[in-house]
Simulated scan of single mutants.
Amino acid sequence: MKRTAILFDMDGLMVDTEPLARRSWEYVVAAHDAVVSDDLYGRMVGLRTSESARLLHAELALLLPVEELIARKTAAFLVALEEGVPVMPGLWALLDRVEALGLRWAVATSTPRELAESVLGKLGLVGRYGALAAGDEVAHGKPAPDLFLLAAERLGVAPANCLALEDSGPGCAAAVAAGARVIVVPTETTRHANFSGAYRRYPSLAEVAVDLEALL
């Protein structure tokens, strides 16, 4: 079966926003004399903002309501984005290759739609992707398959006809459950994650671009 579309995760895969997200969470909880450990943040990667907030709230026994925690983190993250959005190595080469092959592509991100559109807009990608599925648009976040199923549906392509690119364990599990062929490109934070079911693992998007036709 030939894959005809690509489903991209965003944070940690297309853009190096995980450090910005972590600093935003740390800024918020620091006001309550709490810290975000490496282990705790590692468990947050790939989750929706609401789920990350609930995890932080429980683990750090914060008195701040979850909704307020989300609002403050979102505000801090938007301020951080004003400094620019760093892209992951090989992103532009891969997107050019995807489009040269006539493949449609979508973004399936745990990030809320407002923030996702802000990030993609700053990269000048609005109009290039065929669809966007965001974390606040589905009933269940990763590792449930909902985001990838929605992204494929909005592209008008069956999930089995999609190649999904992920950097996190929950994201990999979600894409596998959706029925896509999954390629993982781990970050330093996620390199020890469980990538069961992944078709292949790469060190960067640049290598994915080189092998793209074979991966389809």
Rank of each mutant, 00 (worst) to 15 (best):
M1P: 05
A5T: 00
I6G: 00
F8W: 10
G12S: 07
L13W: 03
R23F: 08
Y27K: 15
V28N: 02
V29L: 14
A34G: 07
A34P: 09
V35T: 14
V36I: 05
V36S: 09
D38F: 12
D38G: 15
L40C: 05
Y41P: 12
M44F: 04
V45I: 13
G46V: 03
E51R: 14
S52G: 11
L55I: 05
E59H: 15
L63G: 14
L63F: 11
V66L: 12
V66N: 11
A75Q: 08
L78C: 11
V87N: 01
V87R: 04
P89H: 13
P89Q: 14
G90H: 08
W92K: 12
W92I: 11
A93M: 15
D96G: 04
R97F: 08
V98G: 00
E99V: 00
A100D: 08
A100L: 04
L101P: 02
G102M: 02
L103K: 03
L103A: 03
R104K: 07
A108G: 08
A108Y: 07
S110C: 08
L120E: 04
V126T: 10
V126C: 12
G127T: 07
A131I: 12
A133V: 13
G135N: 10
L150S: 11
L150Y: 09
A158F: 00
P159Y: 00
N161H: 08
A164K: 00
P170N: 08
G171Q: 03
A174D: 06
A177L: 05
A177I: 07
A178R: 04
P186T: 12
H192Y: 14
N194A: 07
F195E: 13
S196P: 12
A198T: 07
R200W: 01
Y202M: 04
P203Y: 13
L212I: 10
